[in-house]
């Protein structure tokens, strides 16, 4: 684990992609993005996996800072914490822009002469 060499910000965003690199967790995140806060019971129905499995995946997502739990009456609800997703998206957009610039330089260099 190379975390000791990393700047705090990079180390904090490290688990985001590991957390999203799983189909079930991706589906849970997509569901929470679309439906807003949902209970574990709600997330389990139609997911094709057990309540325990859903709970385990939610804990992974919560540790990565992607979802947070809310207490609503007797049921615990989960919702998306958009900040971490936005941060990851901004990084990807910055890198995409760098590629767009490189490709347009490649295009110009070949179409000039």
């Amino acid at each position: 684990m190379p975390a000791k060499r990393l700047k705090p910000e990079a180390a904090r965003s490290a688990p985001v992609f590991a957390a999203l690199g799983d189909r079930t967790r991706l589906r849970l995140v997509a569901r929470l993005c679309e439906d807003g806060p949902v209970s574990i019971t709600g997330l389990t129905s139609g997911a094709g996996i057990s309540r325990q499995a859903v709970t385990k995946h939610l804990h992974v997502l919560a540790r990565a800072g992607l979802v947070r739990g809310l207490r609503e009456g007797r049921e615990r609800l989960y919702e998306i914490d958009p900040q971490r997703l936005d941060q990851a998206r901004q990084h990807l957009q910055a890198i995409s822009r760098q590629w767009d610039e490189a490709l347009s330089r490649l295009k110009e260099s070949l179409e000039e002469g």
Binding site: A10, S13, A14, L92, A94
Partner: peptide, 17 residues
């Protein structure tokens, strides 16, 4: 020309950006 970049795991992504 199609360029793809893959394998971002959060650490590499943050550092790269």
């Amino acid at each position: 020309v199609t360029v793809t970049e893959t394998g971002f795991d959060g650490i590499s992504l943050a550092r790269r950006a």
